[in-house]
Design a protein around this nucleic acid. Structure first.
Lengths: 185, 185
DNA sequence: GGCATTAGGAACCAATTGGTACAATACAAA
DNA sequence: TTTGTATTGTACCAATTGGTTCCTAATGCC
């Protein structure tokens, strides 16, 4: 009962994700956020409590959409070569200079917002596990402990790659990185 | 001639560096910035053009102080073990959750502010060169090209480490990372 | 058709934003 | 001591900030 929604909630959250992802939390003001979400103030504050809640929803959306897609790609990767599987993490970086939302959120709000830090950590953990899965499935590293360390290393490399990518030039050759990293184990 | 400065410029820029480093650019408002720098509005806008100029000065200060110190530590490292030398990059991370200013600046302003991006890239380049120096000096990697790649890899690892560090838990074991990375070359 | 309930949208809000104007002040040179 | 010059601090500014109010509009249920 009541008047039906005129906006698509999924689409709105997706818009929020895109602009927060690109511009960060503080640098995104309400008018721009509203525009990106395709709704007006009234609807916004009815559907979401405040700006922070919308940001957290955007993080969840990123988890469902981007992270899940990456995890799935890693899990279902058919190649025997782990580098080929990991390319999904590194290739789509130079396009829009938005980096990785997890990394952005950690850097901007990690120390001051426990909810954000927790969500970001959870997503990072999902990635870490998926990376580990690729390694153990192909038995690419000797001991199990070694695999865990290598997975963690690749995750850190990924975040560093994304961070440096936002700075512009000199992205580094991730293929050679991975090759050097995995070729000798 | 004229009334003499009552504040120490070096100390003011240092204060700006500290608060920008910890809180970022947008999240730092004028009152807090002024307080951190130990001066009032009038003096601030006489000595610096605006907030952005102060931020760029803070970046330069970071270059002179923090980056130079790290570079020097890497260059003058006496140990035969590269891991020991690199520990200067990774150890002081968990203390204040401020991360690495270069990484923070890249993530927050890299895509939108060319001056910031350029300064951040220049500092990253200095670090990269110093890391490379540690490697070649000890002949820890076979070919020169391999050394360059490994140095780049360590730099990326460093940024990722700093970014994840701001998110809190699960910092990862950088010692094992480095050991696995260098032990097999 | 009335009624309850919800969404939409504009007007409005106090607080804060970065930045400016200007008068008071403190020094050096004359 | 006067004068010129630079710094200081406060009062002030318009614009923007995130958020609220409130009236209108649109639906389902009786």
């Amino acid at each position: 009962m009541g008047r039906p929604r005129e906006f698509d909630t999924d689409r709105a959250v997706h818009g929020a994700m895109e602009i927060f992802w690109r511009n960060g939390y503080v640098a995104t003001n309400l008018p721009d956020l509203l525009n990106a979400m395709g709704l007006t103030r009234g609807s916004f504050y009815k559907a979401f409590k405040d700006k922070e809640t919308a940001y957290l929803a955007a993080l969840d959306r990123y988890d469902e959409a981007v992270v899940s897609k990456a995890v799935q790609a890693l899990e279902t990767c058919e190649s025997d070569d782990p580098e080929t599987c990991f390319s999904v993490l590194f290739s789509s970086s130079k396009d829009v200079r938005r980096g990785c939302f997890i990394c952005n959120a950690m850097v901007e709000l990690g120390p001051d917002n426990p909810s954000v830090a927790q969500k970001a950590n959870a997503m990072a953990e999902r990635l870490r596990k998926a990376i580990l899965g690729v390694l153990v499935k192909r038995d690419v590293v000797g001991s199990a402990k070694n695999a865990v360390t290598t997975a963690d290393l690749i995750l850190h490399l990924y975040f560093g790659h994304q961070a440096i990518g936002k700075g512009g030039e000199n992205l580094g050759d991730w293929q050679t990185h991975l090759h050097g990293l995995l070729g000798q184990n």
